[in-house]
Computed example of a mutant assay.
Amino acid sequence: MGLSADPATDRPGLIDSSVARYADGLRKASNPLVLRPELWASCEQQARQILGECIATLHGTPVQVAAEAELTSMALGVQRSFEKVSPIDSVHAARVLFDVAVETMTEAAARLPAEVALSRFLTAVRMLHKGIFTRVSAAAIGYESTTLRDVGQASTARRHQLARDLHDHIGSSIGLALRCLDLYTMEQATGVASTRDRLEDARQALRDVFSFTRTMVSGLRVNELHDGLKEEIDAYSAAASDRPAEVSSRIDGDESWLPEQARQELFLVVREALRNAFAHAGADHIDILVSVFPDAVHATVTDDGVGLPSPRTGDGTGLTAMRQRVTALGGTLELISEPGQGTRVQLRIPLDDAGAGAR
Rank of each mutant, 00 (worst) to 15 (best):
V326R: 01
A235F: 05
L14D: 02
S155H: 14
V91S: 03
K28W: 10
V85S: 09
R159I: 15
V63D: 05
A177F: 04
V136Y: 02
R196G: 03
G77D: 12
A154T: 09
H59K: 01
Q45L: 13
R325A: 00
V269I: 11
S172A: 15
T313E: 14
V192L: 15
L35F: 01
L335Q: 09
A8T: 06
A205P: 06
I233E: 04
D6W: 03
V290P: 04
D201E: 05
E260P: 02
E260K: 10
H59A: 00
P37W: 02
G13Y: 02
E70I: 07
D182K: 12
T72I: 11
T327W: 06
Y236V: 07
A138E: 05
G142M: 08
E53N: 15
L335P: 02
G219Y: 01
P339L: 12
S218Q: 00
P12N: 01
F293K: 13
G60E: 04
T72V: 12
D303M: 05
H169R: 11
L162T: 10
P311G: 12
G152I: 04
T9F: 06
G13E: 00
V306Y: 03
M105T: 14
A245P: 08
V292D: 10
E68H: 10
L199H: 00
D168Y: 06
L183P: 08
R159P: 02
P62Y: 04
H92V: 02
A56C: 05
V34K: 03
M322N: 13
V222M: 04
A240W: 03
A5H: 04
S237C: 13
E68W: 04
L225F: 03
T313K: 13
S17H: 11
